[in-house]
C-alpha cells in the first residue's frame, strides 16, 4: 500500500556539476506532490534518485520507515512512468502490463489466469479495454501514456513516480489526461510524485507543490500558500501568472477510496 516518502539532505552531482544540493522533502502517504521547476533545476534527478535509478552521493530516502538505500530496485517496488513512456516496443499491451508480474520469482508469481485478470482490470481502470493485442506503435500518445501507467500500477507500487507525464502530448489530450489522472489518484490513493515544468499542470493537479531551482527546493506548500506568500523572489517570479481558481479544492484525507490493490 501507499507509504510516506521522506527525502533527507539528498546530494548528487554529475562530474563537477551539482544537480542536487541537499534536498529534503516530506510526502505524506496518499499525497500527490508536484516537483516544479525550470529545466536544469534537478527535478528529474530528484525523482530518479527516489526511484533508485540514480546513484546518490549523499543523503537518505525513506519509504515509510524503511531506508531505501538498503533496498534493491526490485525491492523498492516503484511505479515509474518515464517521460517517453519507455514501453517495450516489441510486446503487445498485454505483455507490457504483465511484465512486472511475470518477472517475479516463481514463488511469488501469480498464476497465468490471475495475471490476465489483473491486466484486464488495469486496462479498464485506464479505460483501454480491448486493446490488449495492440503494439505500442499502434497507439496514440495518450493511450501509450495510460499503458505506461497501467504497467507501473501492475506491480502494486509503494509509490508512483511520474516524469513529465504529459510532456509529450498535445494541449487538448494533456488537459483531459490531467483531470483523468486526478480522478485516478482520488480512487487509488497512491503516494504520487510527479515532475513538471508547467505551472498550470502543477497547480491544477497537486496537493502540494515543491518548487526547485538550481538543485534546491525554494519552497514547498499548497497552491494557495505559494501564490499568497512566495518565500523567495524566484518563486514570486515563477508563479506570478497563476490563477488560483483552477487549483484543486483542499481535500480531506483519503477516506473511502476504491482499493485497487
Amino acid at each position: 500500500m501507499s507509504v510516506a516518502v521522506t527525502v533527507k539532505n539528498l546530494t548528487k552531482s554529475f562530474g563537477r556539476y551539482p544537480a542536487l544540493g541537499g534536498v529534503s522533502l516530506q510526502v505524506e502517504a496518499g499525497e500527490l506532490v508536484a516537483l516544479l521547476g525550470p529545466s536544469g533545476s534537478g527535478k528529474t534527478t530528484l525523482l530518479r534518485a527516489v526511484a533508485g535509478l540514480e546513484q546518490i552521493d549523499g543523503g537518505q530516502v525513506f519509504f515509510g520507515d524503511i531506508d531505501a538505500n538498503q533496498l534493491t530496485l526490485r525491492e523498492r517496488r516503484i511505479g515509474f512512468v518515464f517521460q517517453h513512456y519507455a514501453l517495450f516496443r516489441h510486446m503487445p499491451v498485454m505483455d507490457n502490463i504483465a511484465f512486472g508480474l511475470r518477472a517475479r520469482p516463481r514463488k511469488t508469481r501469480p498464476s497465468a489466469q490471475a495475471i490476465r485478470d489483473k491486466v484486464s482490470e488495469l486496462l479498464s481502470l485506464v479505460q483501454l479495454d480491448g486493446l490488449e493485442a495492440r503494439y505500442p506503435s499502434q497507439l496514440s500518445g495518450g493511450q501509450r501514456q495510460r499503458v505506461a501507467l497501467a504497467r507501473a500500477l501492475a506491480i502494486e507500487p509503494r509509490v508512483l513516480l511520474l516524469d513529465e507525464p504529459f510532456g509529450a502530448l498535445d494541449a487538448k489530450v494533456r488537459k483531459d489526461l490531467r483531470k483523468w489522472l486526478r480522478d485516478l489518484h482520488q480512487r487509488t490513493g497512491h503516494t504520487t510524485l510527479f515532475v513538471t515544468h508547467d505551472q498550470d499542470e502543477a497547480f491544477e493537479l497537486a496537493d502540494r507543490i515543491a518548487i526547485l531551482n538550481l538543485g534546491k527546493i525554494e519552497q514547498i506548500g499548497t497552491a494557495a500558500e505559494i501564490v499568497r506568500s512566495p518565500k523567495t523572489s524566484f518563486v514570486e517570479d515563477f508563479v506570478q501568472d497563476i490563477d488560483l481558481k483552477r487549483a484543486p479544492p483542499a481535500r480531506d484525507k483519503p477516506a473511502a477510496r476504491l482499493s485497487l490493490i
Binding site: F82, L87, A103, R151
Partner: peptide, 25 residues
Amino acid sequence: TSEEEAALTLGASGFHTFLRVTLPN
C-alpha cells in the same frame, strides 16, 4: 536505456531484462 530502466523498476533481474527486453530489440 529507458526500456531497460523500466524493466528494472518493474522488478526484473538483470538477466531477465536482457533476455526479454534488450535481446528482442
